[in-house]
């Protein structure tokens, strides 16, 4: 089973892949309308927004958690490289 390289979501169904394309390594939630993958900033903002919406955390705490999550994902490795 593939896991989205940009958010970590497991992808089993065709509909869970970007543009329904099972050869893609990222999911439907991490794709722009044209099928390209979200940028680092886009993903970071969407993760922060999601954490604030679902867990009600302060933005600073949500940002720290979002960056920590992204650090472990293959899509963003080079953004954290020293």
């Amino acid at each position: 089973m593939k896991t989205c390289i940009a958010c970590g979501m497991p992808m089993k169904e065709k509909s869970e892949f970007a543009m329904g394309d099972e050869s893609k390594d990222y999911c439907v939630h991490c794709a722009n309308e044209d099928g390209s993958m979200h940028s680092f900033e886009q993903k970071k903002e969407s993760m922060i927004g999601f954490i604030v919406k679902t867990q009600g955390l302060a933005r600073e705490a949500a940002e720290s958690a979002a960056l920590s999550m992204m650090k472990k994902l293959p899509a963003w490795e080079r953004n954290f490289a020293n």
Partner: peptide, 13 residues
């Protein structure tokens, strides 16, 4: 702590 938040984030999805 952040990993713990990530765990709750999975549940919240």
């Amino acid at each position: 702590k952040n990993t713990f938040i990530a765990i709750q984030s999975i549940v919240s999805i």
